[in-house]
């Protein structure tokens, strides 16, 4: 058994964002973190390692010093045995499918039996990469899981769907799981582990090392025209005592915005 996990290092939830004047790019102000859902994936991978006494490898597409520092300080410090960070200039403009193709190639090369991902990355909010990885590998996938049991090569997972519906699904590994909040409680890295993690292996293959070319990751979905959220019509505070405000509110909801 070998466990894989996909960890994306993204801007934190309270980052400030500003689109450039021409909308061709944007600026992010804030610190970077391993995404909150990826943190659940990391914890599940470590729990699986503890159960099966097996190896955990983390995969990241897109490198840089801050990315490597984050992975060492969190994913490796928490117990992953190795990090694979794919860096290549051709990845700069890629899309989800390009990222997924890169991850799938790296996962295949390592020979993982199960891969944990976050349910979504909190920068692009794409919710695409894990399902694409599963398809490219020909594996089963179960998204937004809140419970998981693995026995041998069989699994039973509970997924959280729309409308508060939960389904228990069964299948066989290999499989990709995406983590929903509630799956587990991520632990914090301890200082000695953070220091020890500095010596853990971290590989930085380029696309060629994974048998891929720049053309394999050419984007088919391109985002342009970045801008602020659509403006809301300016609101107003109602005046008077509670009775007055309440009847005025009901009137406005009926007559002004016609939503009642």
């Amino acid at each position: 058994m070998k466990v894989g996990l996909c960890a994306k290092v993204t801007a934190d939830t309270d980052a400030r964002l500003k689109a450039s004047a021409d909308g061709s790019s944007f600026e992010v102000n804030g610190k970077v973190v391993v995404g909150p859902y990826d943190a659940f994936a990391v914890e599940e991978a470590i729990k699986t390692k503890e159960k099966f006494k097996c190896e955990v490898v983390s995969f990241t597409v897109g490198g840089g010093d801050d990315v490597v520092a984050q992975l060492r300080g969190t994913v490796l410090a928490l117990g992953a045995d190795k990090a694979v960070v794919v860096s290549d200039p051709a990845l700069a403009g890629t899309d989800s499918l390009g990222v997924a193709r890169t991850l799938a190639a790296a996962i295949k090369k390592e020979g993982c039996d199960v891969v944990f991902c976050g349910k979504q990355a909190i920068d692009d909010d794409n919710v695409q990469v894990p399902a694409m990885v599963a398809e490219l590998l020909g594996w089963a996938q179960v998204s937004r899981i809140v419970e998981l049991e693995i026995e041998g090569t069989d699994f039973k997972a509970t997924r959280s769907m729309d409308g508060g519906v939960r389904e228990v699904v069964a299948g066989s590994l290999p499989a990709v799981f995406t983590a929903e909040r509630g799956l587990n409680t991520p632990r914090y890295p301890k200082l000695p582990a953070v220091i020890a993690a500095k010596k853990k292996p971290l590989e930085t293959p380029d696309l060629a090392a994974l048998g891929l070319s720049g053309g394999d990751v050419a984007a088919k979905a391109v985002t342009t025209a970045y801008g602020a959220p659509p403006e809301r019509p300016k609101g107003r505070k109602l005046e008077g005592d509670v009775d007055t405000m309440v009847s005025e509110l009901v009137r406005l909801l009926r007559e002004e915005v016609k939503v009642l």
Binding site: K220, V222, T223, T224, Y226, G227, P229
Partner: peptide
């Protein structure tokens, strides 16, 4: 929306 709605963008698909 991207970044939980703090930024918006157009997506064109080829």
């Amino acid at each position: 929306p991207l970044f939980a709605g703090k930024l918006y963008g157009d997506v064109k698909i080829s």
